[in-house]
Amino acid sequence: MDDVPKLLEAASLLVPEEIATENDFTVNDVWEYLTQDEWEVAFGLLEELGDVRPLPLGFWETLAAAEGLRLERSAAWCHWRCYETRHGVIRADLTLRPASAARRQTPLAGAGVLKPMWNIGNRTPAGEPSLNIAALWVEFTPFLEPGGRGPVRLAPLDPSPWQYLQPGQEITMHEDRSVAGTAVVLEVQRPSATPTA
């Protein structure tokens, strides 16, 4: 319960009670779930706030306390959002090659564990494709089946080669020399000037 004050501090970014509509989440909503030991629901409400507007790094760092509450996926998501606050957001629509045409025969883990290589259009000095590594988070589902399609988020190990990526650009995913999937960039958000605010 030591994390409750921190969570309520994070919840202070929710809509104030006095101006909330019936569709808004408020600090009291979060508090109610916490008092009923519905930690996962409370975290879910707070995580959804990040989809509505950009939030400061401290918000995501506070929510990363989910590690101590055994909410591993929530903790991983909050760490992912810390990364995005510092380095920017890259979202794409990924289509994996079917199992009959690719090396991958099992579902792709979706919670930022896999760090495949990507051909994003960069070249080596010799003119060969230069592959760049980025962790992969599959949105809205815990995994993506071979041949499946879905929105993903990318977290480059080195963000600088990715700075020229544009929405609509096609990039390819590689787990070895062969193409494992093709993605179309949906969104590129540069990091805010003050990620710690």
Rank of each mutant, 00 (worst) to 15 (best):
P125C: 02
A183P: 12
R190L: 12
P125W: 01
G150F: 09
E40M: 08
A20I: 06
I171F: 00
A193F: 04
C82L: 04
Q163G: 09
L7A: 02
P195A: 07
V41R: 12
R149A: 07
W118G: 00
A102V: 13
G88V: 00
G88I: 04
R73N: 08
T194Y: 03
V30R: 03
Y164A: 11
T196I: 08
E17R: 10
E47W: 09
A135T: 10
A134Q: 07
T182P: 02
T141N: 09
V4N: 07
P167E: 09
R177I: 01
H79E: 14
T35V: 12
I171K: 03
E84Y: 00
V27P: 01
S178F: 04
E175Q: 13
P54F: 07
E175W: 02
A197M: 08
V152H: 06
T62M: 02
L49C: 10
N122M: 12
L57Y: 13
L154K: 05
V30D: 00
E18Y: 11
L94G: 11
M1D: 10
I19T: 15
T124N: 09
T182C: 03
E32V: 07
I133R: 14
Q163I: 11
L49V: 10
H79L: 14
V138Y: 09
A109V: 12
H87T: 01
R103Q: 10
A92Y: 03
G121K: 06
L186Q: 14
L14D: 04
N28A: 12
G58H: 12
R177W: 05
A64M: 05
T106P: 02
L14V: 03
L69E: 12
R86D: 03
A42M: 00
Y33E: 14
V89F: 06
L57V: 03
D2N: 08
V188E: 05
L7R: 05
E61R: 14
W118R: 04
